[in-house]
């Protein structure tokens, strides 16, 4: 379990805190998504959970971050990332080691650094290659892949180190819908089959709604919304903090204000939810004649 206890953090030389009085409990084997406008503290939250704050970025930290009973500030970084917390960045290009010439070796890089024996390393790499659908690419150069493939290699090379928690900072920002689907499906497998806890910054609301268990919204360093993706994504507060709502929500909202949306039904955040809602509404009116 991950627990943030009244955390306030200010970067060095910054006047205002980037995170302000955040308390949050994230249960094991769950998929938490984070939304918020630029500068709302999303990346700071991720850096905090990974231990980059306070170990890499200094500044002033108040409150505690506790992962599986250990205070991150009191645990050396080499025991946090990656044995415990895996971190995947927005740009896959920058997180490839740069020192490996094939996908297979690239994925093994972290295990080599941890001193894992060769036979075990080889087995673990093969398992992860299969899990992320990368078996065909093993002999390719990691730099000669498409964006989606490269991001899956980046994910695989962090996941192979078997962290209990995965922190992902907009991993699909540079991907097309096909690449985005590949990444989301890989993550769902990890949460459901491998009992990994995932924290992911993501702006693609339709994908969050379809895959995440829980969604929080940050605004100016404060936690402003917390709930199921559908509840948060259809909240009217979302507009106030500058995060756009999906077209499905917009369509249903107009219908609602005209009195056409079922009263007991939450607004939809995905296409499926919207279709279900509109079907119910149509049935109701057909019934009325």
């Amino acid at each position: 379990m991950i627990q943030l206890d009244r955390v306030t953090y200010t970067y060095p030389h910054a006047k205002l805190p980037s995170l302000y009085d955040i308390s949050l409990k994230i249960s094991e084997s769950s998929f938490l998504a984070v939304v918020g406008p630029n500068g709302s503290g999303k990346s700071t939250l991720c850096a905090l959970v990974a231990g980059f704050i306070p170990h890499h970025f200094h500044g002033t930290l108040q409150g505690q971050v506790i992962i599986d009973g250990r205070d991150t500030a009191a645990t050396p970084l080499s025991k946090l990332v990656t044995p415990q917390v895996g971190f995947v960045f927005q740009n896959p290009f920058n997180q490839l080691s740069g020192a490996k010439l094939t996908v297979r070796e690239e994925i093994a890089f972290g295990l080599e650094n941890l001193g894992v024996p060769r036979s075990e390393m080889s087995q673990r790499v093969d398992r992860v290659l299969e899990l992320f659908g990368l078996t065909e690419l093993v002999h390719r150069s990691p730099y000669e892949l498409s964006g989606g493939e490269m991001q899956r290699v980046a994910l695989a090379s962090v996941f192979v180190m078997e962290p209990r928690v995965l922190v992902l900072d907009e991993p699909t920002a540079q991907l097309d819908p096909w690449g985005t689907r590949q990444v989301f499906e890989a993550i769902r497998t990890l949460v459901q089959n491998k009992r990994v806890t995932v924290i992911m910054i993501e702006d693609k609301s339709e994908w969050i709604a379809a895959f995440a268990d829980r969604l929080i919204a940050l605004h100016e360093g404060r936690l402003v919304l917390d709930g199921s993706p559908r509840t948060v994504l259809t909240s009217s507060h979302l507009d106030e903090i500058g995060v756009g709502v999906s077209r499905y929500t917009q369509a249903a909202r107009s219908t609602q204000s005209a009195g056409g949306w079922p009263r007991d039904l939450e607004l939809p955040a995905t296409l499926d939810q919207a279709v279900a809602g509109f079907k119910r509404a149509r049935k109701f009116y057909e019934h009325l004649g």
Binding site: F87, S97, G110, L111, G115, V116, R118
Partner: peptide, 15 residues
Amino acid sequence: LALEARAFSAPCSKT
């Protein structure tokens, strides 16, 4: 940071 996340500075002998 990415290298750190791949245990580059882990204090053990590498394989």
